[in-house]
Amino acid sequence: MRKTEKYPVEGPNALWQIYRTVSKWKAVKNFVWIQISRYCPSLPVKNWIYRRMLGMKIGEHSAFALMVMVDVFFPEKIKVGSNTIIGYNTTILAHEYLIREYRLGEVNIGSHVMVGANTTILPGVTIGDYAIVGAGSVVHKDVPPHTFVAGNPMRVIRSNASDGLTGTADVPDSLADH
């Protein structure tokens, strides 16, 4: 189960009421910095933007690939450990706006984690140290440490997956192409 806090709304759907929950100036500022970081080729500059301009907690030597989209409204709720790779075009959300409520949840991604390209990480999840998330996955629940998960819906492919892992060599061919 994801760990999110629920906030009920009355009237139009919660997204229609977005600026009652977050300042539009914060949203504009964050959007600009996120767009710069999405295209920035320098990993140290990206991490500086995430830490200093967006308030994220990013560990040493973590790498965000091209086009990663972090939460525009609540990036400060995202924490990434050290030496982690977030793959191309991954989306990390700390909010979800529904019809009658919105939900906020911290996203904690451990150290030495590999997140494959085009993955979506939903609010309120924790991805444990040394976990591997296959490309194109939807992370809708916690991922234990040392576990390889993949798919939509996400499922455990293998426990103790990072024992001796030196890249993607231990990823089954059927998942490596996704």
Rank of each mutant, 00 (worst) to 15 (best):
L165D: 09
T90C: 02
G151I: 00
K26Q: 12
M53D: 01
Y97D: 04
I127Y: 07
G110I: 04
S159T: 12
A65W: 12
V171W: 11
E76A: 12
G167H: 02
E101H: 15
D170P: 02
A65I: 05
A169F: 06
V139P: 00
K29H: 15
T126A: 07
A169M: 12
E96V: 14
V139N: 00
H146R: 15
N152R: 15
W25S: 09
L43G: 08
P144S: 14
G81E: 06
N83R: 15
T166N: 14
W33F: 14
V68I: 10
K46N: 02
M53L: 14
L98H: 12
G105T: 04
H112D: 11
K57P: 01
I99M: 13
G116V: 11
G167N: 03
A135Y: 02
L66S: 06
S37N: 11
I36E: 08
V149E: 02
E106K: 14
A14K: 08
H112P: 09
T120K: 01
S111Q: 07
M114I: 13
L15V: 07
G105E: 05
Y97G: 01
L98K: 15
L66N: 08
I157H: 07
W16L: 03
K77D: 14
Y88M: 15
N160D: 12
N83M: 09
A63I: 09
G164E: 06
Y39M: 11
G110A: 06
E10P: 02
P172C: 14
M154D: 00
V9L: 05
I58M: 07
L15Q: 10
T119F: 00
A117P: 02
G105S: 06
W33Q: 05
G59W: 10
L15N: 10
M69W: 12
M53W: 08
P75N: 10
T119M: 03
S137H: 08
P8W: 09
T90W: 00
A14Q: 10
R155V: 10
F74T: 10
K46Q: 05
H140V: 07
Q17H: 04
R155G: 03
V138R: 00
V125I: 04
Y130P: 02
V107R: 06
S137V: 03
P8G: 08
I157A: 06
